[in-house]
Amino acid sequence: MEGNYTVLNRLTNGIFKENPIFKLALSMCPAVAVTNNIRNGVLLGLAVLFVQVASNCTVSLLRRVIHERIRIPAYIIIIATWVSVIDMVLAAYVPAVYKEVALYVKLIVVFAIIISRLEVFACRNKLWPSFWDGVGMGVGFLFALVMVGFVRELLGSGTVWGYEIVPFRPFFFWSLPPAGFFAIGLLMALFIWVEKKFEAWQQKRKEVRP
């Protein structure tokens, strides 16, 4: 089962080919809920990145220990452990950041993207590829949240990372939760369109210079 994975392959897979939001459409609830500004998106994205990498590594190391039939509960325990660890560490050592992210950090336990990566990848691969898979997926998630947050914050409040870009609120609708679906849907379409164009261009290049 253990394939040949390179670092670059894992990173591009997470960010483009299997982007958690735009391609796999996993963990959409938090993506819709917290992305009315970039800042929230970045904070949640970073927390997910950490938990994804840590859980991937743990599961990859323990893949021969965890019994096949209880792997899902075992994964949940592992994810919950890491989430609680970062929750406590942030609360103790960086209270200023914790005040902002406390709500989202606790939510990560139930993120579909994390457990799906454990089930699909980490439980069948060695530590190193699993680590990079976690990084790729985490960065992909972060990237998607930043994109959605950027669009919604700019259109909804006329600001980017809290800095005023236009002195009014162009479309307040974009700040409301339902707009999250629209933003994600439209960006998803754009993302896939760009990717298709890129693939076609690559194909053409190959034909010209075989």
């Binding site: 019994h67 452990t81 609680s84 660890v85």
Partner: peptide
């Protein structure tokens, strides 16, 4: 198996 995993996790926490 599950008991040991929980135990390890509880110890870490």
């Amino acid at each position: 198996n599950l008991f040991l995993i929980s135990l390890a996790s509880a110890a870490i926490l």
